[in-house]
């Protein structure tokens, strides 16, 4: 095929299916190509610059999702290796003669990863993709944040209680402030210290021994229910005495 007829073929291919034309360019390239390289190759192949620029955003999205195109940084590379290749598949592919050098390195990495990271709890090596790694780091950051937020609420409560005590806040003011503080975390009190009430074993816990339902009791310290978005959790029953 002459240069000219090859150009015509690429332009024709581009007119019919721009993504296929770009894949063709990538398949023939010896090294990864940038967007500028691809556009230049298309123009060299007889496609008008305006046409390339017009369809490029759409082509770019298709390439990112293409099974046989690897996007690394700003470069695109044709790869016969499926994106979610397992260690076993990688080993089989390595045995094939036609695998390009770039892909071989990739396959070796997959096999090496499988050998160095023993699967845990029946997890397969193919699960350890980049997405999984980023998910781990992200999840770990969220777990840490939840723990910090919980401890922060506790620290703020302790700090407020100390301030109120030093300012000699009246009991009524002190209780109001502490209850308001924990309400922001979704905590609702059960009873009030010092109040008299009727024993209910679902909400009350005897300070000592056993109390029959319906008996008159004195609240020693209040309990708390956590009103979470999807459920109510009894955190602590109110402690009472007869």
């Amino acid at each position: 095929m002459t240069e000219r007829s090859r150009g015509k073929a690429l332009a024709g291919r581009f007119a019919g299916d721009p993504v296929a034309a770009v894949c063709h360019v990538l398949r023939r390239a010896a090294a990864p190509l940038t967007a500028t390289d691809i556009k230049q190759a298309l123009q060299d192949g007889g496609v008008a610059k305006a046409d390339v620029d017009r369809v490029w955003p759409r082509v770019q999205r298709k390439l990112a999702a293409h099974d046989e195109v690897l996007v690394a940084g700003r470069t695109y590379r044709w790869s016969v290796v499926p994106k979610a290749v397992t260690a076993t598949q990688a080993l089989e592919l390595l045995g094939e003669a036609r695998i390009p050098a770039g892909d071989k390195a990739l396959l070796v990495d997959v096999v090496r990863a499988a050998l160095t990271h023993q699967p845990e709890n029946g997890k397969h090596a193919e699960d350890s993709s980049d997405a999984e790694d980023s998910g781990d780091a992200e999840d770990e950051a969220r777990r840490r944040q939840s723990a910090i937020d919980a401890v922060r609420a506790l620290a703020e409560l302790a700090s407020e209680a100390e301030e109120l005590a030093v300012n000699e806040a009246r009991p009524e003011a002190l209780i109001h402030r502490l209850r308001a503080r924990v309400k922001r975390s979704g905590l609702e009190p059960i009873d009030r210290a010092g109040d008299e009430t009727t024993f209910d074993r679902r909400r009350h816990k005897p300070i000592d021994g056993a109390i029959r339902d319906g008996a008159r009791v004195l609240v020693v310290r209040p309990g708390y229910v956590w009103k979470a978005p999807t459920e109510e959790v009894l955190i602590a029953k109110a402690v009472v005495e007869e």
């Binding site: 300012n167 000699e168 806040a169 009246r170 003011a173 109001h176 402030r177 308001a180 922001r184």
Partner: peptide, 23 residues
């Protein structure tokens, strides 16, 4: 401002030595 986001009233506790009243 924060306290009143969940409660209808808020008690401002003040150091009695500075303000002469406690809340």
């Amino acid at each position: 401002k924060i306290g009143l986001s969940t409660m209808e009233e808020h008690v401002v506790v003040l150091p009695r030595r500075l303000f002469g009243i406690s809340d």
